[in-house]
């Protein structure tokens, strides 16, 4: 996010998800300030350990869906009662049952498209996004804990390195992003 100043990241890789969870538990107990945790697949139990708030994506999804419902139903109502009323098959102008399929489809469409785009936008994921890739094996089989050490003194950095050693990290490295 701060593109002008380089960020220094100290990270350690673990070989197993259980090991990662144990390490995160220990980091919490030691009051270490974890910047982020990276894994090749969703590790369950990690959210609670890291104290991540529940995602509100589904609320956004509901709002988008409701918008879709209103758009579809409102538009068809306007067209068939105000803008250009036509009688189809002797039915009333405002033939609500016939509006259900399109209303349903647009509800799903708006909710799905809205949620997906919101997901990518808030996660800062898009073509050309420049997110830090700490190690190529993180998307393969390694589980990574990262600390932001930009403003850390040497003593703190050593403390973090000791933490990695104590929790059995298979690789510890520093990366500037």
């Amino acid at each position: 996010m701060n593109s002008e100043t380089k960020q220094q990241i100290l990270f350690g890789l673990y070989d197993d998800d259980e090991q990662l969870l144990d390490a995160v538990r220990k980091a919490k107990a030691d009051h270490l300030d974890i910047m982020d945790v990276y894994s090749p697949f969703p590790v369950h139990g990690l959210d609670e350990l890291l104290g991540l708030a529940e995602s509100r994506l589904h609320i956004a999804g509901f709002i988008y869906g409701a918008l879709g419902t209103l758009t579809a139903f409102g538009f068809m109502t306007w067209v068939f009662t105000r803008d250009w009323p036509i009688i189809f098959g002797g039915k009333p102008y405002w033939s609500v049952p016939a509006f259900i399929p399109i209303t349903f489809e647009l509800t799903v469409l708006f909710a799905a498209v809205g949620m997906t785009f919101t997901f990518y936008a808030v996660s800062r994921l898009w073509p050309g996004a420049d997110n830090p890739i700490l190690h190529p094996r993180i998307t393969d089989d390694k589980f990574c804990i990262a600390f932001d050490t930009t403003a850390c003194e040497e003593g703190d950095v050593n403390k973090l390195k000791n933490f990695f050693e104590a929790t059995g990290a298979s690789l510890v490295d520093v990366k500037e992003v």
């Binding site: 945790v37 990276y38 590790v43 589904h58 994921l125 073509p127 420049d130």
Partner: peptide, 19 residues
């Protein structure tokens, strides 16, 4: 999309998949 596998991303990703 420059995916990194961050914990928060995975959490949202699972939510999104489920919904």
């Amino acid at each position: 999309f420059s995916w990194t596998g961050a914990a928060k991303h995975w959490q949202r990703w699972e939510y999104l998949s489920l919904v």
